[in-house]
Write a protein that binds this DNA or RNA. Structure first.
Lengths: 242, 242
DNA sequence: TGTACATCAGTGAACGCGCGTTCACTGATGTAC
DNA sequence: TGTACATCAGTGAACGCGCGTTCACTGATGTAC
């Protein structure tokens, strides 16, 4: 982290350090009170500074919020990437389960950061486009697994006649296909086109499932959530024919 | 609505009316600023009252929030129930699609109410158990459709050997089964036990999909969201063998 | 039908709190010659 | 190596705002006899 910015003098090093500390304090506040409770004054208080001093580091509350959102996406992305990388390449089911489990574990450890990125949009806050690179880490990771199972081109193309999902399934509307094509084109080795929508569905289900657990929607319905989660993820893997 | 409380005198009628007006004003504020922006003072201002007068109707901000949450669940439930009831009973795919579409339409029309019930929990607010009856309307509706397709008992039991979901699928953990059994027992005519988890998954996917659309997670990924949504819901219907 | 009393809605002032952001300033740290 | 100047971090006071909740009160509406 430090090596990235490579600050020249002592002043720059201290500045980078304090910038990081401000975000850490912000994260702590987030954990305690949620995004509504994120307050520059409270951060300043915690750091033993006067409130206006924060403005030397972040020009406004929204900028800090953006930084924290990017941090959260990157933190989740790192956790998922590391877990996925530890699994043997050929074991695609294992890679998917490792990714999904890492995402869930990350969310359980930092529920408010999860809420920040996947919960209700913060009122009056418009997310700048800076966040998309970080937001896309895990979806791209998943798409990579699917692409390994169902590559888009080459001699194995013939094997891919199996339709995505269950035997009875619906043709994908053309308007959706083209959008997803454009998304896949961003990948070096994209999955075969008919697997794109199922991949997005898998990602939706993963996020939906974690949110349901975290936000308490299956309270008193599912007790052993870990078991139910794994069951779900295995079902999805089967659908994706990993 | 009026018939439910059946107020005796004129005073009681006015009180019921104003209570409703307060919630309507709250809903309007929610729509503009989200749950954070819900303010008793602002409601009082809008109604031309002094702020303390609101306390004659709701003893605290949290109580009002609870009332609005229940309203939202009930409003969504009414929309879904009406749409589902309009479809011929035998057309189970149609009933599912009508339900899912009604949920999405309701959400698009009232995004902040959606966020209130399915977004991040309001910080510092603990939902009382009063909300569960309303929260469960749509899930129960869906479970009813699945139950019609796959009833739990009777002579048709033999036809139900088809496993839920795709051909390759995972056994459900016993701990999850028992919890879902308990849930299904609340229904008069529950679905066969092996369809319970797929039903909850379908509900999760429905909510996840609408949230993704509303919260902007597929911005610049899926353009024709209506088409994608229908595609998804048809896939789910196939999985549920409706 | 009329009077006496109890209930209740709404008032207005106040308590105590927190927030984001701006601004002119001091003094220390870095930079150029 | 030493001095002069520019940069920058942090200060403290202030602006203007909003909030939930409490409390003693006034009057109007309802109820019991």
């Amino acid at each position: 982290v430090t090596t990235l910015s490579a600050p020249r003098g002592a002043r720059a090093r201290v500045r980078a350090e304090l910038t990081r500390e401000i975000r850490a304090a912000g994260r702590r506040q987030l954990a305690e009170q949620g995004s509504t409770g994120l307050s520059l004054r409270a951060i300043a208080r915690e750091m033993g500074m006067v409130s206006s001093a924060i403005y030397r580091y972040y020009p406004s509350r929204d900028e800090l919020l953006t930084a924290l959102i990017i941090d959260a996406y990157e933190s989740m992305g790192r956790a998922a990437t590391a877990a996925e990388a530890a699994v043997e390449r050929a074991d695609r089911l294992g890679r998917w389960l490792a990714t999904a489990t890492a995402v869930r574990q990350w969310a359980l450890a930092a529920p408010q950061e999860w809420a920040l990125i996947f919960g209700s949009p913060v009122p009056g806050y418009r997310a700048p486009t800076d966040t998309v690179d970080a937001a896309v880490i895990v979806p791209v990771l998943i798409m990579g697994i699917v692409a390994d199972a169902h590559p888009s081109a080459g001699p194995d193309r013939a094997d891919l006649a199996i339709p995505p999902g269950p035997a009875v399934h619906t043709p994908m509307p053309a308007s959706v296909r083209s959008e997803l094509d454009a998304l896949a084109a961003q990948l070096g080795q994209p999955p075969a086109v008919e697997w794109l929508a199922p991949t997005v569905m898998a990602w939706t289900q993963l996020v939906g499932s974690v949110s349901f657990e975290l936000f308490g929607h299956l309270h008193n319905v599912i007790e052993d959530y870990a078991a139910y989660f794994e069951f779900q993820m295995r079902e999805i893997a089967a659908r994706l024919a990993l």
